[in-house]
Design a protein around this nucleic acid. Structure first.
Lengths: 245, 245
DNA sequence: GCTTGACAAATAATCGATGATTTTTCAAAA
DNA sequence: TTTTGAAAAATCATCGATTATTTGTCAAGC
């Protein structure tokens, strides 16, 4: 059961769900689990953009104590998902048109650079991973009337874009790209509930992947840049519709 | 008075220095002050690269309690200066040849992109700031025999590079560049105690600045890229001498 | 009516103590 | 001698309580 958007922290009677951890995913501490849970809550829009994070209420919502909560929030600053000010606490990073535009620009620059590098030094394993990620993405349904398919699609879509650039052997660059992708996905999941009809996104992804594994740098990077740019334009329209400056 | 390199946390009898805060610099809380102090300690090499950060000892060294210390360390993860593992605590990020090479590459890409953007949209104020930063840099002595001049030079040098790209109106990009500059400066301050004679760094900076304010994008970006690249090559040599892979 | 300032409530920040995990030690067994 | 494993020590993680700061309230003065 999930609370309504933005109400997660404001709720009084909390039925805090302990994440099912049969298998050890390396996230052993409360603080680390909180990082994941908070990140998901913000990207999915459950925690409203720009809203203040009240520590007392958040403590209760997530059924945790203050120390791990503060530590988790501190770590999330780096993801650009949370902002902090001394004695004023933490707040969910606000959304804005200019922020979206910067994210789009940086994705274009960073991801094409990382893709070029990947094509330059990536090995056969990486190529295989790209094709597998493409296949999964193409096989994943995205139906606006079924919310669970949207979440699933977001996951494999993210995986596809990350796999594309995962061959570059530049860990810092990859972490920056991940951050930008997170921020970008928040916009999509918040504002793009329906898919726009005038794009064949599946074809776009296939072209990028095909160009990539055949190491046609200019082609692949051009397609990727266009793809990112179109997404940006698309999102910008939806932001404008909702009157967000 | 300053302790020897790497001994900061290991010291037993701590004469913890409270930073002089006549004027409010916005860093009101212990945690925020710690972020600055820890960052400086790491970049300057006082905290040895790759070493584990023992919380008990660090607590004593810095005369703080555990909560703000952990929070500060958590925030430093984003700067790439600190790494963390569940139940194993924090450690100073290690240095390596490949890490240095990535930092150099990313600085070349990010900073030239940011410089181009700055030249595209930067205003007259920004131009003025660039010229002022250049002037300060050129007026700042850098004498290997006087350690305090090295620190001073590092500060104005950092300020120069950040000012160059400060006109770009892309806050996320700027924060990435800042991060890369931090990481880069740690290498310089750790491994480049003497200045190499075969470069006229002053001329390099002047050319970059002149090209910038005259909005000659290609010229300025080429000079900046060369400048960053030379620094990287230089540092790489010093790492090799010290046998760092 | 508007501003000011003291008081109260809400919230953030820090601390010391306790609980949990990892690492080290060291003796017994192979 | 080497390996094993339980106990001890060290260290990390979490908690509840306390302190400090900010925000909200409201009455007195202008």
């Amino acid at each position: 059961m999930r609370s309504g958007p933005g109400s997660l922290i404001l709720e009084s009677g909390a039925e805090a769900v302990t994440p099912p951890s049969f298998l050890d995913d390396g996230k052993n501490t409360i603080a680390s689990q909180l990082v994941s849970r908070l990140r998901e809550a913000i990207i999915s829009g459950q925690l409203e953009a720009g809203s203040k994070i009240n520590l007392d209420r958040a403590k209760q919502s997530f059924n945790v104590s203050l120390s791990p909560l503060r530590e988790a929030l501190a770590r999330l600053i780096s993801d650009g998902l949370v902002e902090f000010e001394d004695n004023r606490g933490y707040r969910v990073s606000p959304v804005s048109l200019s922020n979206l535009e910067e994210i789009t620009s940086l994705r274009e620059e960073f991801e094409t650079y990382a893709l070029r590098e990947s094509m330059r030094v990536g090995d056969v394993d990486w190529e295989g991973n790209v094709m597998r990620a493409l296949h999964r993405l193409n096989r994943t349904e995205r139906d606006a009337s079924k919310p669970e398919t949207l979440e699933q699609w977001e996951a494999v879509h993210r995986e596809f874009h990350l796999t594309l650039i995962s061959g570059c052997r530049k860990p810092l660059l990859l972490s920056f790209c991940k951050t930008m992708l997170n921020l970008n996905d928040r916009y999509r999941r918040t504002f793009l509930t329906r898919t726009s009809g005038d794009r064949n996104v599946r074809v776009e992804h296939s072209e990028i992947a095909q160009g990539t594994v055949s190491r046609d740098m200019d082609y692949a990077c051009d397609r990727l840049r266009e793809h990112i740019h179109r997404t940006g334009t698309n999102l910008r329209k939806h932001l404008a519709e909702k009157g967000i400056a």
